Computed example of a mutant assay.
Amino acid sequence: MKTRFLIGFIAIGLVFPLHSISQTLPSGQSIANKTHTRDEGVSLSRKLTMELKDKRGKIRIRETTSFRKYFGEEKRLVIFYLTPKSVMGTAFLTYDYPDASLDDDQWLYMPALRKTRRISAANRGDYFLGTDLTYEDIKLETRINRDDYTYKTIGKEQVDGHECFVIEGLPKSKEIAKELGYSKTKLWVDATLWMLRKADNWDVAGNYLKTIEIKDIKKIQGIWTYHKIYVKNHKTNHETIFRIDEVDYQTEINDDAFTKEALVNGL
């Protein structure tokens, strides 16, 4: 009898702490929400260099200038392509609305066509101008999509020596999965900074698709800022590296930079 009692006590002792630990982890939805409350400043200007590497090792470099500004809770982001000549003048603009019932507005200006095209919600899972990030990925940056997925917290792990909450997200419908291009996502969110540090994504057929890694996070003018994004597409063996330089949160940006007219007229 004493032996049975001891074994039972040990079993309870082993199980109960694990259960208690799991109860202390924040919910996946609360973690996603937290990434939207992080201080990002009111405005931001930066240089963004994109390095595209195909499966044969051929590398293409694209240089851009990017501006971001908050209008209340609404975030606007614009990217102007500077080099190479083949894409110079291309520009992208997005309005990220806080109201989840509204579709965000996104426009792409292609100088060769002399036309500004609106990116519909159905196309937000398309890849952004030859990179391995989608239009939705570009809009979110290091935030988590808080409206289109059902999340659950599955544990804590370290990424590059930093403690992260690990959450898994499933699209709320097949239609949303098709729009986003993902059937599942696994996310590592810094438990202190509430920034995404890593993401694994699966395509709509359930195949392991790509990995996104956020690197070189440091404070600029008092705000935690990432300086490198590495993306690997496991199906195509294509890679994209985004390098961020000349970050400035203090210089005021004219509201006119975030208009469709600015896309056409350029900087």
Rank of each mutant, 00 (worst) to 15 (best):
I10S: 04
N237F: 00
A112N: 09
H162N: 14
R118S: 03
R143H: 04
K218R: 15
D248I: 07
G125E: 07
I220V: 15
L108P: 01
V42I: 14
Y249K: 07
F9A: 15
I244P: 00
Y127D: 07
K115M: 12
P84K: 03
K228G: 08
L93P: 12
L25N: 03
V247W: 00
E252T: 14
L6D: 02
I223A: 06
G181I: 14
N207F: 00
K184D: 14
T185E: 11
K232L: 14
I241S: 04
Q106I: 09
G161Q: 11
R38H: 00
E73G: 06
K219H: 04
F242N: 10
G13K: 05
T251H: 07
L180S: 06
P98N: 05
V78W: 00
F92G: 03
F165D: 03
P26L: 09
T65G: 09
W202P: 12
G222L: 07
K260A: 11
G155A: 09
R56I: 09
T35Y: 02
F242D: 12
P26Q: 13
G169I: 08
G181L: 14
F71D: 10
Q29N: 13
L187K: 02
K186C: 02
D216F: 01
K53E: 14
F92C: 06
L6T: 10
E261P: 04
T131I: 14
E252I: 12
K58F: 03
E51Y: 04
